[in-house]
Design a protein around this nucleic acid. Structure first.
Lengths: 248, 248
DNA sequence: CCAAAAGTGTTGAAGTTACACCCATGC
DNA sequence: GCATGGGTGTAACTTCAACACTTTTGG
């Protein structure tokens, strides 16, 4: 009765990823459009995810899902926690869908949720040949998702909010060169509240993790902004040693 | 090939609980002593935990483990996250132990970790008939545990630290009536650093969640302290509406 | 010259830190 | 009367919140 467990899919454990992107205006989430299923409902949409293999650890599984979908590696990833009520598969469309993609569609599955931050420019599904019916959707427009994915999304948003008050992980969402206004808008999007411009700038600059590139935006119909990049060394230092004051 | 899934143990998913108690001096953790296994090592000790049933959700499973061990219900419980590398069962003693307690000792298991806070007086294993080789061990004395339980313990300590800076959950660790000094020591134990006495008192009192019982300690060989209880209504209010300023 | 976003300082209020002495009790 | 922990206030400093105008560019 020995089971061979190497390289087999584990029927009971999956990972799901909430992949955030920022279009310089608002937060977006990368979701899978399941098409024909549940035609009119916004729960056509699901988070990318899959069962884990028995020989990979949870983080690896999440990285794998991310890479299989987007081709991206070296992504910021953070576990949110485990989800999975026995009755999480209560929607009809979800049952049908599982029949089509799972070897054991009736199995009890618990899923380990992650959130990840990517530079949106690095993955534009519509322009890309990778595209497997994945699409960016504004995070605040999502009102319903497959299974318990909406709960997971809420958890991810909350987690991200908490985390960004403690660590400057927001840089993972921005292009290499960015303006303070873009950073400002990013924080407002994540925290879902307005932040005073002057106070924000003061605070972020005092962190001393920005390098001024002494370069300006071009072609904008207003006073061009200075461009900054993010100072990795300083960041690592902060991550290691923690910091004292960084709430918004 | 339909599987009957109701009420079966799921071979791949377990929950483990880090149960904290406070003896008015320091933080303790309730661990299982596996006795004969690995005689000299401190990894004789393990966290209480078990496989989940297919018809219960994760929180329920954690409550069940807690109740089966201590007889306690209505316990403060919080999920930490999911753990479980494929190679988490690398210690010989752990393999042997699993053979003795699991139907499928070779199965890949991921475990969902929880931390919980109990009033230590409510469960004294040495005095209790419930005792199933469970014992309280000072949290900081633990250097090794079965499987990846030591990692889980570290995660739990970190989580508790974060959480107590945001919500006054510490009350779950104290008797109904307590002194400000006891509360003070509790915060110092959890945060693992000294806190100024006067500043601590000011801050905690400003939260306005304590009710002064106008009652004094008796039989202590020094000026008796005032006793306080914890104001549940106010607490709920804070939990709901969040609060502004509560870092230590 | 107009529209649009960039950039910049100050002030009052609140919060944080650091610190030392007297008090009430049991023995 | 002494040992033990209980209980209290203030001053210097830092942080936070609120607020309005000038600048530079493209069209």
């Amino acid at each position: 009765m020995e089971k061979k467990i190497v390289s087999e899919l584990n029927p009971n454990v999956s990972v799901d990823c909430v992949i955030f992107g920022f279009d310089l205006e608002k937060l977006n989430v990368l979701v899978i459009d399941r098409g024909e299923i549940a035609v009119e409902s916004s729960s056509r949409l699901a988070l990318p995810g899959n069962l884990i293999y028995n020989n990979e650890n949870l983080d690896q599984a999440a990285y794998r899902v991310l890479e299989e979908l987007t081709g991206l590696t070296n992504i910021y990833l953070e576990q949110i926690g485990a989800f999975g009520d026995p009755n999480r598969i209560c929607k009809e469309a979800d049952k049908v869908w599982l029949q089509s993609i799972r070897a054991e569609p009736e199995a009890r599955v618990i899923t380990v949720a992650y959130f990840s931050l990517v530079k949106m420019e690095d993955y534009m599904p519509h322009a890309s040949s990778f595209a497997k019916n994945a699409e960016w959707v504004p995070a605040n427009d999502i009102t319903d998702l497959a299974f318990d994915h909406f709960d997971i999304l809420q958890g991810a948003k909350f987690n991200l909010k908490q985390k960004i008050k403690i660590q400057p992980i927001g840089f993972n969402l921005l292009p290499e060169k960015f303006t303070l206004s873009q950073l400002h808008k990013l924080y407002e999007s994540i925290l879902d509240k307005p932040l005073d411009k002057r106070n924000f700038r003061r605070k972020i600059q005092k962190l001393d993790i920005l390098t001024n590139l002494n370069e300006k935006q071009a072609g904008v119909p207003h006073k061009p902004s200075e461009l900054y990049k993010f100072n990795e060394a300083k960041y690592q230092d902060i991550i290691q040693n923690g910091y004292n004051n960084f709430g918004f």
